[in-house]
Amino acid sequence: MSGMLSSARTLYLFASAAPPVLDVAGVVENARRDGWDVCLGLTPTAARWLETELEHLETLTEHPVRSEYKLPGEPDAWPPADAVLFAPATFNSLTSWALGITSSFVVGVAAEAIGKNIPTVAVPCVNAAYARRVGWSADLRQRALPVGPHSES
């Protein structure tokens, strides 16, 4: 597929360490078939889970897989995003994002995307114990993350 996506829209696909991340290569393949240039970002734990697949994922996306912020002065390794999909997004990532705690590269870039009015979607993958946590549903409603340029303030 090399060179085939030069005019494609760019999707930042972000993923946390939850079982669906093990199928991220399939998500990348589907997005590329749909005409997206995919840049894959992982939380540090997700990167550790996929450590043996990172080289394959970089070949598949034709971009470096990132799990850390770049150093000051380093050029961007990815083209600008047209959309962000954060799937799976774990309890930790969603809570950090909602609270503005951006120590994780993917959480920070996702938070920044909203400020840049880049359409952004998160697909939670939260285990039952976290979902039963008192206030989880209220937290989500209260701290709902706006998505894209048509979100209400």
Score class of each variant (00 low, 15 high):
1 M>Y: 12
2 S>G: 07
3 G>S: 15
4 M>C: 11
6 S>C: 10
9 R>F: 06
13 L>F: 04
14 F>H: 10
14 F>V: 09
16 S>I: 03
17 A>W: 00
21 V>I: 10
22 L>V: 06
22 L>T: 13
24 V>K: 00
25 A>C: 11
26 G>L: 05
28 V>M: 05
28 V>Y: 04
31 A>Y: 03
34 D>Y: 07
36 W>D: 01
38 V>C: 00
38 V>P: 00
39 C>A: 11
39 C>G: 02
40 L>G: 01
45 T>E: 10
47 A>W: 01
47 A>F: 03
48 R>E: 11
52 T>D: 13
52 T>S: 15
53 E>L: 07
54 L>Q: 05
54 L>T: 07
54 L>P: 00
55 E>W: 08
56 H>E: 12
57 L>A: 00
57 L>M: 02
57 L>F: 01
59 T>S: 15
61 T>Y: 01
61 T>N: 04
62 E>N: 06
62 E>V: 02
67 S>C: 08
68 E>L: 14
70 K>W: 10
70 K>G: 13
70 K>I: 08
71 L>F: 11
72 P>G: 11
73 G>N: 07
74 E>D: 15
78 W>R: 04
79 P>Q: 04
82 D>T: 09
82 D>A: 07
82 D>C: 06
83 A>S: 08
83 A>L: 05
84 V>S: 03
85 L>R: 01
86 F>Y: 08
89 A>K: 01
89 A>W: 01
91 F>A: 07
93 S>D: 02
96 S>A: 14
97 W>G: 00
98 A>Q: 15
99 L>D: 12
100 G>R: 09
100 G>F: 06
101 I>P: 03
101 I>D: 10
102 T>W: 09
102 T>M: 07
105 F>S: 03
106 V>W: 02
106 V>E: 12
107 V>K: 00
112 E>H: 11
112 E>D: 14
112 E>W: 11
113 A>G: 04
115 G>Q: 11
116 K>A: 13
119 P>R: 04
119 P>Y: 05
120 T>M: 04
121 V>H: 09
123 V>T: 06
123 V>E: 07
127 N>C: 09
128 A>M: 08
129 A>S: 15
132 R>V: 06
133 R>P: 03
133 R>C: 13
134 V>Y: 13
135 G>C: 05
137 S>Y: 08
141 R>A: 11
141 R>M: 06
144 A>W: 15
144 A>F: 13
147 V>R: 13
149 P>G: 14
150 H>E: 09
151 S>K: 07
153 S>A: 14
